[in-house]
Amino acid sequence: MAVPIVEMIDIQKHFGHIIALSGVSFSVMPGECHCLLGDNGAGKSTFIKTMAGVHAPTHGEMKVNGETAHFANPRDAMSAGIATVYQDLAVIPLMSVSRNFWMGREPERGVWPFRTIDFKMADRVAMQEMSHMGINLREPEQAVGTLSGGERQTVAIARAVYFGAKVLILDEPTSALGVRQTANVLATIDQVRKKGIGVVFITHNVRHAMAVGDRFTVLNRGKTLGTADRGKISADELQNLMAGGQELAQLESSLGGTV
């Protein structure tokens, strides 16, 4: 049995008198896409922010490669190989693809204090990595704002992969995208997984999850309702778990099963 890259055991998170998470367990294996499903307010964001080092858990244990880890800030998580791509905060639209790609890790050349960014190298690598992901840029100086939503996510994903992420957390990468763009992002997830990177795919769209997921964990009101393997659970069952069962069943019958 392989060791999970990241394992979260009985994680609780309280904000004052609000219990955002009340005992969530979750793990990611190398090369798998583990979908974290949940409706709005289920605690998905809190959970991934805990994993990404933004919040410290109130209770529970985190293990990276089988060893206990504590993250004081997002940088700690990043250096442990956990990269997060936030939905709206992935990239800076006013800046070029190349500048975004290297943000915070700019390659430099020259003698201090006259060190400058090595644009030649930066541009070449950015173009190359983007083209591996299937996006052909007009030029590396192209502003990210000129790209579509899916392509922006891809810039952030390509960046995380290039800088050696072992776990990639994608926060609702498809929720604001059109059909074709969604398909592109899902294809990218598949590609990333094949490199042996563990992907945590957060979504509330069951269909998107079913398309790429290897395992599915449903979060509801701060609790996990269990983890299921691919093929052992149907889309309807996931949908019901997310919404807390009965209420949705009633709703669904009135809507003719279209939700």
Partner: peptide
């Protein structure tokens, strides 16, 4: 200036 929160998340 472009997006302080995004910049912070990426380590600026």
């Amino acid at each position: 200036g472009g997006d302080p929160q995004a910049a912070r998340y990426i380590g600026v």
